[in-house]
Amino acid sequence: MTSLNEEMADVQTEIDRVRDRIRTDVPTLFKFDVTVSQIEYNATNNSVTLTVEPSSNARTQISDEFGGVRVKMEDQLTFEFQFSSQE
């Protein structure tokens, strides 16, 4: 039988693994550089909310993509991923 501390350590390891995966995979969804700045797990909803912010190079990258248009960025994007169980 495992102790509560061992189970909590296993949970923390899994959360860390998910955070690492999010930090690696989410930026590949964009055609410009972004930084995943905040990741929060909500146990009630069994979901992860993350904040994505454009990098300092993003404005230039987006401008180049659209032929030199002027780009203004003032905010961030927030995503919520709902976990589902596969049984």
Rank of each mutant, 00 (worst) to 15 (best):
L4G: 09
N46E: 13
E53H: 02
R21Y: 08
V69L: 03
R70P: 10
A9E: 15
S63Y: 13
A58M: 05
P27F: 02
D75K: 06
I15E: 05
Q76E: 10
T60R: 07
R21S: 08
V36F: 11
S47N: 12
V34A: 01
E6R: 11
V36I: 10
N5L: 11
E53L: 00
T2R: 12
P54Y: 11
L29H: 04
E65L: 05
S85P: 06
D20Y: 14
D33F: 02
Y41P: 11
S47A: 13
V26A: 09
F79H: 03
K72L: 02
K31S: 12
D16Q: 13
T13L: 09
Q12L: 07
I15M: 08
M1T: 09
R19Y: 09
R70C: 05
F79M: 01
G67L: 13
S56D: 15
L4H: 02
T35A: 07
L4T: 07
V18M: 11
R59N: 13
S3R: 15
A43V: 06
S56A: 10
M8L: 15
V36S: 11
T49P: 10
A43I: 00
N45V: 10
S63E: 05
T13P: 00
T44L: 03
Q76W: 02
F83T: 00
I39F: 11
S3T: 14
T35G: 08
R70S: 04
Y41T: 09
S47Q: 01
T44Y: 07
A58G: 04
R23V: 05
E14R: 00
K31H: 14
Y41M: 10
V26W: 02
R70L: 08
R19E: 05
I15F: 04
S84H: 12
A9F: 12
Q38E: 12
V11T: 14
F79S: 03
E74M: 06
N5M: 07
Y41Q: 13
T44R: 01
A9Y: 15
S56E: 14
S63R: 09
E7N: 08
P54D: 06
I15K: 07
Q86N: 00
F83H: 00
E87T: 05
L50Y: 11
V69T: 04
R17C: 08
V34C: 01
F32R: 00
D10T: 09
V52A: 15
F83Q: 00
T2F: 11
S37A: 00
G67C: 15
T13W: 03
T28D: 08
R23W: 00
T60L: 09
T28W: 08
D20P: 12
V26E: 03
D10K: 13
Q86I: 00
E80A: 04
V34D: 12
T2S: 03
V48H: 00
D16M: 14
D64S: 07
D10C: 05
T44Q: 01
V26G: 01
K31I: 07
